[in-house]
Amino acid sequence: MDVFMKGLSKAKEGVVAAAEKTKQGVAEAAGKTKEGVLYVGSKTKEGVVHGVATVAEKTKEQVTNVGGAVVTGVTAVAQKTVEGAGSIAAATGFVKKDQLGKNEEGAPQEGILEDMPVDPDNEAYEMPSEEGYQDYEPEA
Rank of each mutant, 00 (worst) to 15 (best):
M1G: 00
M1A: 00
D2F: 13
D2V: 02
V3P: 00
V3W: 03
F4R: 01
F4Y: 02
F4Q: 00
K6S: 04
G7K: 02
L8T: 00
S9H: 04
S9Q: 12
A11F: 15
A11D: 01
K12L: 11
E13K: 02
E13P: 03
E13G: 05
G14R: 14
G14W: 05
G14E: 11
G14S: 04
V15D: 01
V15E: 10
V16E: 13
V16T: 14
V16K: 15
V16N: 08
V16P: 01
A17V: 03
A19H: 11
A19D: 01
A19K: 05
A19P: 04
E20V: 02
E20I: 13
E20K: 08
T22E: 00
K23P: 00
K23N: 01
Q24L: 07
Q24S: 07
Q24P: 01
Q24V: 15
G25N: 03
G25V: 15
V26M: 02
V26L: 07
V26K: 00
V26R: 00
A27D: 09
E28T: 13
E28C: 11
A29Q: 10
A30K: 04
A30I: 13
K32L: 03
K32W: 10
K32V: 12
T33V: 06
T33P: 00
T33S: 05
T33E: 00
T33G: 08
K34F: 09
E35L: 14
E35W: 04
G36Y: 09
V37K: 00
V37T: 02
V37G: 07
V37A: 14
L38P: 01
L38Y: 15
Y39A: 07
V40Y: 05
V40C: 06
V40L: 09
G41H: 02
S42C: 07
S42R: 05
K43S: 03
K43G: 03
K43E: 04
K43M: 09
T44K: 00
T44H: 01
T44Y: 14
T44Q: 00
T44P: 00
E46M: 11
E46G: 02
G47A: 05
G47D: 11
G47H: 05
V48K: 00
V48G: 02
V48P: 01
V49C: 13
V49T: 09
V49H: 02
V49S: 14
H50E: 08
H50I: 11
G51T: 09
V52A: 11
T54R: 10
T54A: 10
T54M: 10
T54G: 07
T54D: 01
V55S: 02
V55T: 02
V55P: 00
A56M: 14
E57K: 14
K58H: 06
K58N: 09
K58V: 09
T59N: 01
T59E: 00
K60G: 12
K60I: 06
E61H: 04
E61P: 02
E61W: 09
Q62W: 06
V63A: 13
T64C: 05
T64D: 10
T64Y: 06
N65P: 05
N65G: 12
V66E: 00
V66C: 03
V66Y: 12
G67C: 14
G67S: 12
G67Q: 12
G67D: 02
A69Y: 06
A69E: 01
V71N: 08
V71C: 08
T72F: 06
T72P: 06
G73P: 03
V74R: 01
V74I: 03
V74W: 03
T75C: 07
T75D: 07
A76P: 02
A76I: 13
V77W: 11
A78G: 09
Q79G: 03
Q79V: 12
K80P: 01
K80S: 06
K80L: 14
T81W: 13
T81R: 02
V82S: 13
E83H: 08
E83P: 12
G84L: 08
G84N: 12
G86P: 02
G86F: 08
S87Q: 04
S87F: 13
S87W: 12
I88N: 07
A89W: 11
A89L: 09
A90G: 06
A90Q: 11
A91E: 03
A91S: 06
T92M: 09
T92K: 06
G93L: 15
G93H: 06
F94N: 14
F94D: 00
F94G: 06
F94Q: 00
V95D: 02
V95I: 10
V95Q: 04
K97H: 09
K97F: 07
D98N: 15
D98G: 10
D98S: 01
L100K: 01
L100H: 13
L100A: 10
G101F: 15
K102L: 02
K102S: 00
K102W: 04
N103R: 08
N103M: 05
N103T: 04
N103V: 03
E104K: 13
A107K: 03
P108L: 05
Q109W: 02
Q109L: 12
Q109Y: 13
E110F: 03
E110A: 09
E110Y: 08
E110M: 11
G111K: 10
I112W: 11
I112H: 11
I112P: 07
I112Y: 04
I112G: 05
I112E: 09
L113W: 07
L113N: 01
E114C: 05
E114S: 14
D115Q: 12
D115L: 10
D115W: 05
P117Y: 13
P117L: 06
P117E: 03
V118E: 12
V118S: 06
D119H: 15
D119V: 04
P120W: 05
D121H: 07
D121E: 06
D121P: 12
D121M: 14
N122A: 12
E123V: 14
E123N: 14
E123A: 01
A124V: 13
A124P: 02
Y125D: 05
E126H: 03
M127H: 04
M127V: 15
P128L: 05
S129P: 13
E130L: 10
E131M: 10
E131L: 03
E131R: 14
E131T: 10
E131V: 10
E131W: 02
E131Q: 15
G132E: 03
Y133R: 03
Y133I: 07
Y133P: 04
Q134C: 06
Q134G: 11
Q134L: 01
Y136E: 03
E137M: 08
E137P: 03
E137F: 03
E137K: 03
E137T: 11
P138Y: 04
P138I: 04
P138F: 08
P138E: 13
E139P: 13
A140G: 05
A140L: 04
A140D: 14
A140S: 13
A140Q: 12
